[in-house]
Design a protein around this nucleic acid. Structure first.
Lengths: 204, 204
DNA sequence: ATAGTTTAACCAAATGGTTAGTTGAGAGAC
DNA sequence: GTCTCTCAACTAACCATTTGGTTAAACTAT
């Protein structure tokens, strides 16, 4: 029955992610997770030791996945414009991947959770924050970009990108977006365009 | 004994806001709220009928306050540049006001709560979303702004602004901001500057 | 004024439903 | 025969809500 085990642990994790996303750690019900995973409650305690541990496992799996994604896609690029365009595309590309997980992530951020720092620190490489500020700095020094505050600008860039990820359901209603797929597809280019234009030196 | 009453209800509301912000609706403990408010638990049920009702009261009070603030400060402005600068300053000005409340707001947004639509719809006036898209549209038509997607741009602008409000504790760590007050003070101008520069027509 | 009545504000302790976590017996695979 | 997995029934704790009061201010008829 070994094969079934891995299945059931997998099923539990998936069900747990949905449950935690919908209700949060406190609001989530272990019985409901078991039912959703077509598993017995005892199985949850057999595979994971507690509700809390299950929760942390869900988060860790997802974070390490995202980490790898970042490492594979954003390091080792030279052209500043290219980096920002790639970043913007990266945010869109993780959209579907992260959508179900986002509520968990946001609640963790709200709570100031320690779990979150790991995502943002990118161990064993340059952190995304450093990559951004560094790129802007270089652009300024080379005369490519205007002389603006590096950190304010980096924050603005991340905000433009992540805000849409976080708020897309709300944004959809407020901006009356009918075709979300199309809007999403155009998003990365629109962000990079606005941002790079805002940075570029004017020759007037 | 009338004076005492209003005090205690007030104290409970204040304590409840903190408790709900920290732990969410499910995680919040009525006992803890009572203790924090130096009130008896039964008093909470006397003034507000249930934990749920108390929660809703906390949200409603805050939302109606924010509403009034928006109405008093953002309507009836003509110059497009001015509108964006004011918006950016508005977000910063509610910073302290909203900081303790933000976790509640975010959790509501995550949950897709109905409570939230009221904030964003701004009844009895132009909604903030319409104000922004309208202003951008006018700017484009007058040749003041480049010809870009109005909704993408509006979303980017709101994102630049709100993301900082939401993430300031995280941003502080990642960007190694020591003097947050100063950073905050410079924020509105930095955002408006980047945004307006990104929109403006280039004469090259 | 004042005794008598009502009412709002307050409280400690009990109630009862819910739920995380446990247990122990058993089924099937190898 | 033992290891992995499944299950229903259990329990201990937690926690929202209720109960059954007390207190003191405010009103009212005398």
């Amino acid at each position: 029955m070994k094969a079934r085990t891995e299945d059931s642990a997998e099923r539990i994790l998936k069900a747990a992610e949905q449950e935690f996303a919908k209700y949060g750690l406190e609001g989530a019900r272990v019985d409901r997770i078991a039912k959703k995973a077509s598993a017995n409650k005892a199985m949850i305690y057999y595979h994971f030791r507690s509700k809390d541990k299950l929760y942390r496992t869900v988060i860790e799996k997802k974070l390490s996945y995202l980490h790898e994604f970042i490492r594979n896609n954003l390091d080792n690029i030279e052209d500043p414009d290219r980096i920002f365009r790639n970043f913007a595309e990266f945010y869109i590309s993780i959209f579907d991947e992260i959508r179900g997980f986002l509520p968990i992530l946001l609640r963790e951020i709200i709570a100031g959770g320690e779990n979150i720092k790991r995502l943002l620190q990118n161990p064993g490489g340059v952190s995304p924050a450093e990559l951004l500020t560094g790129t802007i700095q270089k652009g300024i020094e080379s005369g490519h970009f205007r002389d603006i505050d590096v950190r304010q600008t980096a924050l603005s860039f991340v905000g433009m990108n992540l805000f849409y990820l976080m708020m897309s359901p709300v944004a959809k209603i407020l901006l009356e977006i009918e075709n979300e797929d199309e809007f999403k597809k155009a998003r990365a280019a629109a962000v990079a365009d606005l941002f790079l234009n805002g940075l570029r030196v004017r020759n007037e």
